[in-house]
């Protein structure tokens, strides 16, 4: 197919099927939240009737959650966990983006190390946790390291993809106008690859959270993972549920905040319809 005819037809593609009289904001909020309330209500009602020792009522779970949030037991753990996550992610992002830009630009090197990268990405991160802790000890450092290792590969692969996907025309422009190498990297390649890079970090985020929790389930005395494991080991069932629920909520909030930040940072990308 000739690309000329493709581009000619493009503007029409933007036209979505129009619906007469779109819903206003109120109905839209109601539409997107009613099911959440139904699920919560169903959980509340059915768990209240539960006679299974391992299924506490939602009321109980929320009560202990509020209690332990209030007395600081969870807060300290959450701060410890999030610090690990943050540092690990930061290290992974720095290494992943740096090497990704390099490998994306240097095509032959990228092709050579490609199988190695894919191999490391396939190593089960959770199995790595006891190994790294076994070798390097129980401190915060090894935990951060494991998180960084797990998060590195998606960021690296996405960055490489992003660099390889830079419009050839933009590259040619850069060459024709003899943009210096450093400036070309900073002002052309990096911004053009940024949407992909950010997507890589977004993919890495839940992986990081998972490794964060798992790393605290091994011989740790702090953190959200420890709170969950410790509660279950001492048969404090509502606390176990509360911890798991909290991790889920925290994960959700972090993801949503990230997506918000992404929308802001990449406004040009979404506005120009480049995706």
């Amino acid at each position: 197919m000739t690309s000329a005819t493709l581009t000619a037809a493009q503007p029409r593609a933007a036209r979505k099927v129009r619906r007469a009289g779109g819903p206003n904001t109120g109905t839209r909020i109601l539409q997107s939240t009613w099911l959440v309330f139904v699920v919560l209500a169903a959980w509340w009602v059915f768990s209240a009737r539960s006679t299974n020792f391992f299924i506490p009522s939602l009321e109980q779970i929320l009560t202990v959650l509020v209690r332990d949030l209030g007395n600081g037991v969870i807060m300290a753990g959450a701060l410890y966990s999030l610090a690990n996550l943050f540092v690990g992610l930061l290290v992974a992002a720095a290494l992943g983006i740096g090497f990704g830009l390099l490998l994306g630009e240097v095509g032959w090197l990228c092709r050579i190390v490609d199988p190695i990268i894919h191999f490391f990405r396939s190593v089960p991160q959770a199995a790595l946790v006891p190994m790294i802790i076994g070798v390097f000890g129980l401190g915060q450092g090894p935990k951060m390291g494991t998180i960084a290792f797990a998060c590195l590969w998606p960021i690296l692969l996405n960055t490489i993809d992003g660099v390889l996907g830079v419009e050839p025309t933009i590259r040619k422009f850069s060459k024709v106008y003899r943009i210096p190498r450093g400036l070309h990297f900073r002002k052309v390649v990096l911004p053009a690859a940024l949407p992909q890079i950010v997507a890589g970090v977004r993919v890495a985020l839940p992986i990081g959270i998972t490794v964060m929790v798992v790393s605290e389930m091994f011989a740790s005395t702090e953190g959200l993972g420890f709170y969950i494991l410790n509660s279950s080991a001492t048969f404090q069932v509502p606390e176990t549920w509360a911890g798991a629920l909290l991790v889920g909520v925290v994960g959700y909030i972090i993801s949503m905040l990230f997506i918000l930040a992404e929308r802001r940072m990449l406004r040009w990308y979404y506005a120009s319809g480049s995706q």
């Binding site: 391992f54 959270i209 889920g248 959700y252």
Partner: peptide, 26 residues
């Protein structure tokens, strides 16, 4: 699609391995 979007977003960002102690209990 609109009704489930929050639940789906929650599910996909949930670290399922954190649920392990609960699932093992059950």
């Amino acid at each position: 699609d609109r009704s489930t979007s929050i639940l789906v977003d929650f599910g996909r960002s949930f670290p399922v391995l954190a649920l392990m102690p609960v699932v093992i209990m059950l």
